[in-house]
Amino acid sequence: MLQFLSLFNTIFNDAPQPWQLGFQDSAAPGFTGIVTLHNTIGFYLIVICFSVFWALFSIIYYYNTNKNPIAHKYLTHGTVVELVWTITPALILIAIAFPSFRLLYLMDEVISPTLTIKAVGHQWYWSYELSDGCYRFDSYMLPESDLELGQFRLLDVDNKLIVPVDCHIRLIVTGADVIHSYAVPSLGLKLDAVPGRLNQVSFLVERTGTFYGQCSEICGVWHGFMPIAIEAVSTPQFLIMGR
């Protein structure tokens, strides 16, 4: 019952919840932009839904066979109405396309990064390289038997990726064997890890916390068991940990 009620509540966690419908809380400007774009399009969607359903029910009610036994005979052609229902969706699509492209190109921009991290997808774990490969570690999912109280099943890993907050971070993603996808919803990250190709994205974490994600490209039998965990710490703490 409580789970059902939680459908209508805001999610305050940085990991997915059972029966979650909405987005996770944003922790990066890029993801805030995505949520705003989604809600802006949602505005148009509601207007369109009301219009379509109103027209549908109005036509069903007033033009059914009981009320108009031969109405169909004269309702075969309507140039004006056809023009209206072709041009209007085109204009709506253009209105949606502009903010979408704006966000797409803004997110594509890599702003002089403070830190560059390379994430490599393997069957079935992630490995990370920092400082041009001087520091390298693997990140495996924690088995259920090793979980401690408060840790997430299928989401927590043995070695989390530690990043500083309020710093522009460049993430370079590639695959070692097959195509994987590096996805962390709270940070608005979803990047294909393709063997032989380097994909890059820039992100900035706005608050401390642990953010969870999963591989989002079917990559084999244990595709669902190679989660991602990113821990964002303050910059002084990050520097201390770096030593």
Partner: peptide, 24 residues
């Protein structure tokens, strides 16, 4: 049979957009 759609057109368009924009 002509003008059946036009008779209710403004009412339908008004109601649909009115409700839609209010809900949005």
């Amino acid at each position: 049979i002509t003008g059946k759609l036009r008779k209710r057109l403004w009412l339908d368009v008004g109601c649909a957009f009115g409700l839609g924009v209010s809900a949005a």
